[in-house]
Amino acid sequence: MNSTIALIVNVPTLLLLYVLIYFTQSLSGKRQFYGVSLNSDYFNKSEFKALDKKFKFLVSIGFIIFTIITLICIYLFKAYEVSSILPMLGFCLYQFLVYIHIHNKVKASKSELALNISDLDLEKTKVILDTNFIHDKNRIVKRFSMLFTIPTVIVILVGIYVLTQYESIPNTIPTHWGPSGAADAFAEKSFIKILSQVLMMTGIGVIVYISSIASLKARAKLCIDSLDDSKKAHLHYLNMFGFTFFVLNVSCQIIFISILIATLNASSVNTFVLWSCTIVTILAAIYQTYLYYKSPSKSKNAVYSVDDEDSFWIFGCIYNNPNDPSFFVTKRFGVGWTVNIGTTKGKIYFAIPFVIILLSLVFI
C-alpha cells in the first residue's frame, strides 16, 4: 500500500461512516429518539431538536479531527495499516460517547417534560397474536434459513480442508491483504496461526449466518388500525430482508473462502473476487438500510411490545430483558437488530465476536 491508495481507501470509508452516523436518528424510525421511547409528535419539540443538532455538530467535529489523524498517519508517519484501523476505531468510540451523552440528555428532558405532558410515551396498544401470520412468517424464515446454510457449510468445509493440508502450506504465510488483494504482512507458519485464521473466517461466517436468521425471526409489530395491510407489508419486507441477507451471506462467505485459499497457498486474494464481493456487500447493506427505514415495524402506528420499555435498555442500545425469549430485537438507535443479553444464549453470542477478535490479535 502507498500514500495514494491509503488516501483513496481510508478517507472515503471514514466519510461513509460519518454520513451513516450523522443520519442515524433519521433512520431509526418513529418510535425512539436517541434510544429513548418517545411519541414522534414531539420529535420536533425545541428541547429535542436542540439535542439532535448538538449530536450532529459534535459528530462533525469528530469527523474532522479523525480525518486529520488519518492524513497524519498516511503522510507524516507512513503508517498505512494504522491509518486504516486506528482512526476508524477512534471515531466509532468517540461517536458512541457522544451518543451516550445525548441519550442521557434526551432521557432527562423527557422526564422533565413528562411532568406537564401526559402523552410523551408511546401509546401502549395491545399486542396482536395472529397464528396465520406467524405461520406465514415462519415459512419464509425456514426457506431462507435453508438458503443461508449452503454458503456457511461450504466455508466450514474449506476451513477443515485447509487444516488437513497443514503440511503442504509454505513456511511463511500471509496474515493480511491490502485493497489490491496482495499480501502485505507475513508470519512464520505454525498450527496455531493456521487454526486461528480458520476459526476467525469460519467463526465470522457462522456469526453472519446466525445473525441473518435471528434478525428474520425478530418480533414483527403489526398495526392494529389496518391489520390485513400490515400483515401483507410485513411479509413483503420479510421476503426482501431475506433476499438481502442471502446476498450478504454469499458475498461475505466468498471473501472468507478466498482468504482461506490464499492462506493455504500463501498467495494473494483474487482482486476481482475481493472487490466484486465487497461492492455487492455494500450495495446489499445500503438496500437493507432502505428496507429497514421503510419497515412497518418501525412506524409510529406499530403495536406496543415489551422491547419498547425504556427500563430494559442500557444506554438505549443494549437490550437486557431476561423475561423476553426473543434472541434478537430491532435496534432503537441505528439500523438493524441487536441481541438480547438478558438470556444466557444472548450473553454467549454477544461475547463471541470479542473472543474472535482477541484470538486474531494474539495469534495472527
Rank of each mutant, 00 (worst) to 15 (best):
N2M: 02
T4S: 10
V19S: 01
I21H: 11
F23C: 01
T24I: 08
S28E: 06
R31C: 02
Y34S: 06
L38D: 00
L38F: 00
N39K: 09
N44C: 03
F48W: 06
F48N: 10
K49G: 00
F57P: 01
F57S: 13
F57T: 12
S60A: 09
S60T: 15
T67H: 01
I68A: 15
T70A: 10
I74P: 07
I74C: 07
Y80A: 05
E81W: 13
S83Y: 10
S83F: 06
M88V: 15
L93F: 14
Y94C: 10
Y99Q: 07
I100W: 12
H103F: 13
H103N: 15
A108E: 15
S111L: 12
L113S: 09
T125E: 04
K137G: 01
V155Q: 11
V155F: 07
I156D: 04
V162Y: 03
Y166M: 11
S168T: 12
S168P: 02
I169T: 07
N171T: 13
I173W: 02
I173Y: 05
T175K: 05
T175S: 10
H176T: 08
S180A: 08
A183F: 07
I194E: 03
L195A: 15
S196T: 15
L199F: 12
G203M: 07
S211P: 00
I224F: 06
D228R: 08
S230H: 06
S230T: 10
K231L: 12
K231C: 09
K232M: 05
A233S: 15
L235Y: 09
Y237H: 14
N239D: 05
G242W: 10
F245I: 05
C252A: 15
C252H: 09
I254P: 01
I254D: 00
I257S: 11
S258F: 06
S258A: 15
T263D: 03
L264E: 11
N265K: 13
S268K: 15
N270Q: 07
F272C: 01
L274C: 06
V280K: 04
T281L: 13
T289W: 01
P296C: 11
S297Y: 00
K298G: 01
N301M: 06
N301P: 00
Y304C: 02
S305Q: 11
V306N: 11
E309L: 14
C317D: 00
N320C: 12
P325R: 08
S326I: 00
V329S: 03
R332K: 12
G334D: 07
V339T: 14
G342W: 02
K345T: 10
I352G: 03
P353Y: 09
P353A: 05
I357M: 13
I357A: 14
I357D: 07
